[in-house]
């Protein structure tokens, strides 16, 4: 388990990618990471560290925001995917659950879920997949005819994850699933994700600010700062390392702060963890 990055051919390999927005703004400066088949990998870091950008470069959504992978490669099952458009990436088995619970608000819960299966040609199995999703999220079954804009935040996150599951992915990119949700709901959602991982074999790349929660479910973790991976390792090692706790997770005492900016970051992280 420990040597995840040494696997011969991981499910996903991101090889020192550089991302530039609008042709001028350098956002990622040589990011590399690996997700093994069936694994859960956490991508940690503060707001603005580049987690979402990393996920979007994998899913291809980057280009809808005028971003470009200018250096490096992204390989999925050995095939390069960094020049594919989002629809093609989904077809190959990667689906992203975007930050902020983006559901189609004017569609019902069930219609939302159905849109997740659109890349697969055989429309018939969609019904079976719906039942599978309702199996994971029984709450959604009760609310299937309700417009997604009117269900609770936690339920919207479930819709977003369930909808992604409808695409039958090999890899799910989860961007801040805990954002703005009550701790009890976060726990519930993480448990469902981990069940999905065990039962359906869906690998997960999880971008989170809520590091303690993410590390509890992940086997391996990367810490990002300022567009770079500054550290990676076993989830337990990361979670227990004192330095890491202090500098990246904001768990313990006062470090050497150089500017007000650092203080702000520090406080923000602390709020997520307390």
């Amino acid at each position: 388990m420990s040597a995840v990055s040494d696997d011969a051919r991981p499910l996903l390999a991101v090889n020192s990618i550089e991302v530039i927005y609008d042709h001028v703004i350098l956002v990622l400066k040589g990011v590399s990471l690996r997700v093994p088949e069936g694994g859960i990998v956490a991508l940690l870091g503060a707001n603005g560290a580049g987690k979402s950008t990393t996920l979007k470069s994998i899913s291809g959504l980057l280009r809808t925001e005028r971003g470009n992978v200018t250096k490096g490669t992204i390989e999925f099952r050995g095939q390069p995917i960094h020049r594919k458009d989002p629809a093609e990436v989904v077809k190959r088995g990667i689906v992203q659950v975007m930050e902020g619970r983006h559901v189609f608000e004017h569609l019902t819960v069930e219609e939302n879920l159905l849109t997740g299966g659109y890349t697969r040609k055989n429309g018939h199995s969609a019904r079976a997949d719906l039942e599978l999703v309702y199996g994971y999220f029984p709450r959604l079954a009760e609310r299937r005819q309700v417009r997604a804009g009117y269900v609770s935040g936690g339920e919207q996150q479930m819709v977003a994850i369930g909808r992604a599951l409808m695409a039958r992915p090999r890899l799910m990119l989860l961007d801040e699933p805990s954002m703005g949700l009550a701790p009890i709901l976060v726990q519930e959602i993480f448990e469902i994700v981990s069940r999905m991982n065990r039962e359906a074999g869906v690998a997960v790349l999880l971008a989170e600010q809520n590091a303690t929660m993410a590390l509890r479910f992940a086997q391996y973790g990367y810490v990002m700062e300022n567009g770079r991976i500054v550290l990676d390792g076993d989830a337990r090692t990361i979670g227990e390392n004192e330095d890491i706790k202090e500098f990246y997770l904001g768990l313990s005492g006062v470090g050497q702060r150089k500017s007000y900016r650092d203080v702000k970051h520090y406080r923000r992280r602390k709020r997520w963890l307390s």
Binding site: A87, V89, V90, M98, H102, V103, F104, T115, Y118, A167
Partner: peptide
């Protein structure tokens, strides 16, 4: 409803 999310769903 949302072009970007639709794209994310493929």
């Amino acid at each position: 409803d949302s072009q970007q999310v639709a794209m994310a769903m493929g």
